[in-house]
Structure formats: C-alpha cells, structure tokens
C-alpha cells in the first residue's frame, strides 16, 4: 500500500470479492492506507524478553485424547444435549432437486 495509484485497492477488492464504486475508490483507498500506516507502528515493536520462537503466538492447546470420538450420533453439548442434534433441516436459498443452485463456473 505504498503507491499513489489505486491498483492496490483494486487488487485487494478482487482478492476479497468486493465491488467498490469507482467514485468511492479514492476515499476507501485513503482510509485503508491510514489504517495500514497505523499498523506499520508494529515495526518498532521490540519483543525484548519475549520468546522469539515464531509460532509462539497465543493459541490454546488441547490434548489429542480430548478430541471428539468418531461417532455419528453427536451429543455435542454434553449435559445440554443441544447444538447440532436439535438442528432443524436447513432450507437453502435457491435449490433444485436437492442441489444448491450456484452461479456458473
């Protein structure tokens, strides 16, 4: 996001599958650049004393034994007995013979 033209923003729009009106492009681009230059503040961060292991970000951990068993009858909510079990059949936005209608590829 360093150049002055709006190619970057257009590329981002394609990547994000968003359309932005031609008239709004400049304004959007300015706002996004403002945010990105604010993010660039992170360059100054010195993680003194903080472990430098690249993957040492905050992430919860779970033991493999605590994972879900391979059972088709899910009792997802323990005592609650809710969740997926109670799910009603889902009606799709547009469908044909049970298939979901999508745009042509």
């Amino acid at each position: 996001m360093s150049t002055n033209n709006n190619n970057d923003i257009k590329k981002l729009c394609t990547l994000s599958r968003l359309e932005i009106d031609e008239s709004e492009i400049q304004k959007t681009s300015d706002k996004i650049k403002e945010i990105i230059s604010f993010f660039n503040k992170l360059d100054e961060f010195e993680s003194n004393g903080v472990q430098e292991i690249p993957y040492n970000y905050m992430k919860t951990e779970k033991k493999v034994d605590e994972l879900r068993d391979d059972l088709t009858t899910l009792n997802l909510n323990d005592a609650d007995g809710g969740g997926v079990e109670k799910a009603t059949p889902f009606s799709f936005l547009n469908s044909k013979n049970g298939y979901v209608i999508g745009p042509r590829i």
């Binding site: 599958r17 359309e19 799709f92 745009p103 042509r104």
Partner: peptide
C-alpha cells in the same frame, strides 16, 4: 457469498467470480 443462505437473490446467469463480488458488495 449468498449461495447457501443470505438475502433473496438468484445466482442463475451470473459467472461465479462476478456473482460473489456483486452480492458481497
């Protein structure tokens, strides 16, 4: 992406990429 659920809109006739960009606007 307004294919499985969303607001009333029919994807017929749209090309995939342009449909998603269009509805996501």
């Amino acid at each position: 992406d307004n294919i499985r659920y969303g607001f009333s809109h029919n994807p017929q006739g749209y090309e995939w990429n342009s449909y998603s960009s269009h509805v996501r606007s």
